[in-house]
Design a protein around this nucleic acid. Structure first.
Lengths: 353, 353
DNA sequence: TTAAATAGCTGGAACGTTCCAACTATTTTG
DNA sequence: CAAAATAGTTGGAACGTTCCAGCTATTTAA
């Protein structure tokens, strides 16, 4: 083994930190000049820039963002991004795209999750503030109030909501076209001849649930189809919940021939449960999801679902946040991410045609 | 709507930042005292602590971590955690548990992903250093070298590897008992009477692949079973890859009756493809995975798999990192996370018995 | 030819903490 | 009762940057 091992090398006691000043001395300029080089200032000649850059390399200098941020009046290279779960598939997509976009723009995202708990959200937003982030992207936990959001803004931290929004608040938000999505999905099922259609999953204390349910109801009402209360099963959203919800709803009415799921993950649960119950998805039961996770085209049968591009959330959220970081007084925008129904096999062949 | 809206409130121009000094003046003590209160120092009387705390509340003071960190010699309340993907299920579990553990200990994790690319890893670790993290937890990207790890250590940043480790390096690492895991899984299949068993998925440039493959080969060799080269399909790991790999391997030998998958995600792909091909998993084909994601007990059939507790990775990684932050010269530990075979339905009923 | 403008660089003050040595009461010890 | 120890508090010097106003040559304008 050619490499030197850590325990053979007791000199990691950091001989001394190399600072801007050290680089300056080494190169023979002032620290101000070195600082200007780091900031890509145009008022430094190419030759000195060259020399300083080399000096930085030779001394092994590493920039100290903490010191920099202390002096700077506004910090626009650090933002907080809080989702509702670090291990939920759709959030994962968001995080992934946020990181990509942020890195492209030279801004560093501090990721965290509120785990759908307001207390944790409060705690972590406090930490964001202590780190003096330039702004916050937030998927608000249940029980987040408009006045709380207001408090954050007034403390000087621009904030944009994603995926969900606090009811009756008017703060910047980027949400999917939830209502249109479930409407399209439900309409599609109705056109296939289904009449007894259930709506499975979601939490009643979160805005997107109501929007998606509304889209479903729109289509059902327009078609004059009845929706008995037990057809609606708002029992959170997880694979497990999907399995339970399907069982519950079929228990109530075994004639149900189609289900609209709050999310793809719910739908995966429905797929599993169907298989267990010996129900053939596609022919016996039509299933549609919401989100269009990468996996959804790889299930069998492939899942019909409403696509919401996670990358759109990510890039628009960062765009919008940066906008508010520059213009904190600007009018709050509410952006709608378009959706599109991806028809695959899980909704089956036409029944009436 | 009772709340005041942001755009009605043009006074968000931050009247002025409240500092330690302001709090001190407000309470009538020195800034040093306020600082001591913030650090929970025992050398401040209960009555003044009380007063200061109230003062902090009244002035709306928010702690400035950047300023604090600038003065502190060592920062042990901020660490970097880099996984190989923000949107891969197992990494999601790790992130989730890391956040939980970190928050309990009052340390803030900066999450990021190297996307399995060394260049991105280098870039982000540089940023970690610029933020003066106290240490780094890293799932190393392919092509990470021992000398690179050494460089990080020597710059004063303790680092522990998780899930994988750089070959021929001897730096702290926490890895699953990969070899024992696939050995147990393969042995189980052999005992069920299977003889033609394939190994699907994984990347040859990452350590865990070789360990898992070795465990598989151990069991096969011990049983005297042949493993033609095409039985081994190292084509990354994803649901898509799982589908492809199964097709490829059955194409080569349709007599294969069992597959050991590099990961659960691979196995999900195998499950989907089997269904598409009309192969009954459990009776026609035995499938085992690796990881035991939460979903794996909810698939149909439920997936037999090797369980590796993500929470163990998370808490042990943070433990170990904190240890090295305190004792940078300590001998590097290599911790093995135990695994256990979870027998469910996807490996089917005994064949020979 | 002189005044004004500019390009390039500079030293010092500031940012908001923590650390340190020192200071004052108060309590304990011999 | 004096000396020593202790509990509680304090001001000032760091930490490593950025910002600002100013400085010196050089170039441009009049």
């Amino acid at each position: 083994m050619s490499s030197v091992n850590a325990w053979n090398v007791p000199n990691m006691i950091e001989p001394k930190r190399v600072t801007l000043h050290d680089v300056a001395k080494h190169v023979g300029v002032s620290k101000s000049t070195v600082s200007l080089v780091l900031q890509n200032s145009s008022s430094v000649s190419d030759t000195t820039r060259e020399r300083v850059l080399r000096g930085i390399d030779e001394t092994g200098y590493v920039y100290n963002r903490k010191a920099a941020a202390l002096r700077q009046t506004t910090s626009n290279d650090l933002i907080g991004v809080m989702v509702n779960g670090l291990n939920t598939p759709y959030s994962g997509e968001i995080l992934n795209h946020c990181e990509k976009v942020a890195l492209q723009r030279g801004i560093v995202p501090m990721f965290s999750s509120n785990a759908d708990q307001f207390a944790q959200q409060e705690n972590l937003v406090q930490i964001y503030m202590e780190y003096k982030v330039g702004g916050i992207i937030l998927c608000p936990a249940p029980q987040t109030s408009a006045s709380w959001l207001d408090k954050i803004w007034r403390s000087g931290f621009p904030l944009v909501q994603i995926m969900r929004e606090v009811p009756f608040s008017q703060f910047p938000a980027i949400v999917a076209d939830n209502r249109a999505g479930t409407y399209a999905a439900t309409l599609h099922l109705i056109q296939l001849g289904h009449q007894k259609i259930a709506f499975l999953g979601g939490r009643e204390d979160i805005s997107d649930y109501h929007e998606r349910l509304a889209g479903f109801m729109d289509a059902m009402n327009e078609a004059g189809l009845r929706v008995p209360t037990p057809y609606i099963q708002p029992i959170a959203q997880s694979r497990q919940a999907g399995r339970q919800a399907l069982k519950a709803v079929l228990d109530y009415d075994s004639g149900i021939s189609a289900v609209v799921c709050f999310s793809d993950v719910m739908a995966y649960g429905v797929l599993s449960e169907s298989r267990e119950l010996g129900i053939k998805v596609g022919s016996d039961l039509a299933v549609v999801g919401f989100d269009d996770l990468a996996d959804s085209r790889l299930t069998y049968p492939a899942l019909t679902t409403v696509q919401v591009e996670a990358s759109a959330f990510a890039s628009q959220a960062i765009d919008l946040l940066q906008f508010y970081m520059k213009n904190p007084q600007a009018k709050p925008e509410r952006l709608i991410v378009p959706v599109s129904l991806m028809v695959r096999e899980s909704c089956g062949a036409p029944k009436t045609l």
